[in-house]
Design a protein around this nucleic acid. Sequence first.
DNA 1: TTCACTCTACGAAGCAGTTCGTAGTCATCG
DNA 2: CGATGACTACGAACTGCTTCGTAGAGTGAA
Lengths: 125, 125
Amino acid sequence: MAAPRRPTDAELAILRVLWSQGPSTVREVAEETGREGAYTTVLKLLQIMTGKGLVRRDESARTHVYRAARSERATQRQLVRDLADRAFGGSASRLVMQALAVKKASPDELAEIRKWLAEQEQERA
Amino acid sequence: MAAPRRPTDAELAILRVLWSQGPSTVREVAEETGREGAYTTVLKLLQIMTGKGLVRRDESARTHVYRAARSERATQRQLVRDLADRAFGGSASRLVMQALAVKKASPDELAEIRKWLAEQEQERA
DNA sequence: TTCACTCTACGAAGCAGTTCGTAGTCATCG
DNA sequence: CGATGACTACGAACTGCTTCGTAGAGTGAA
């Protein structure tokens, strides 16, 4: 499979619904996004996304059911990589530095970072 | 000033040149991007970016000199925030987690992260 | 059957981003 | 002066994204 193009904003909004709600119909996605009269817009987007391979469609019932083709994590990593390339000279670490400056972390998140740090030092031994 | 729209890919490529080379002429930017026959394309982009307020133009000489209107850091943070909003439910910390998974860090970067971690724990006291 | 409702499909418009060709201006050199 | 070359300005084409309107098919109730 060729390198998939980065999802657009509207596509990402839909993927977010699919990731959090699981496989969904057009109506379910449209209602979750909360916008009025968005039904055919969401339908069209899902059709396009099916063509791009971003989502998969179950057509066994008359009302089709869509699900994200790639996991949230995998997509997030792709986007991080993409941003690192475009704005940080390819350095994910420099991206991390700026992200750390943006917002304080919760205790859980701090713990995760500490854990990651320990692993890094482990590997360096 | 209203919230500036996120720079596009082509705009970011130009900003990267301006950040690393400092104020530059169209020709200097065009040569740095390395693409053939890109001159008028770069010129047009710089004109558009001037209109958007992304760059500032010194017209005192016949050959104009452009410089980035915002710092690299500020722009990077904006982009991080934007990506956090679009793909991480607004959580920069979750973005950090994925970014850490993407690539190993250098010793310097590890040290910076450790320093940041210490500051966080300080504030929590 | 007929009506109302829901669904899919799709065309088309509008807009932004990107690229390129062309025109016109200005400075310099012979 | 006249030619050459570098510069700015700008229109126009092309593409991709997003939105919406409309058509047509399936479903089920009266």
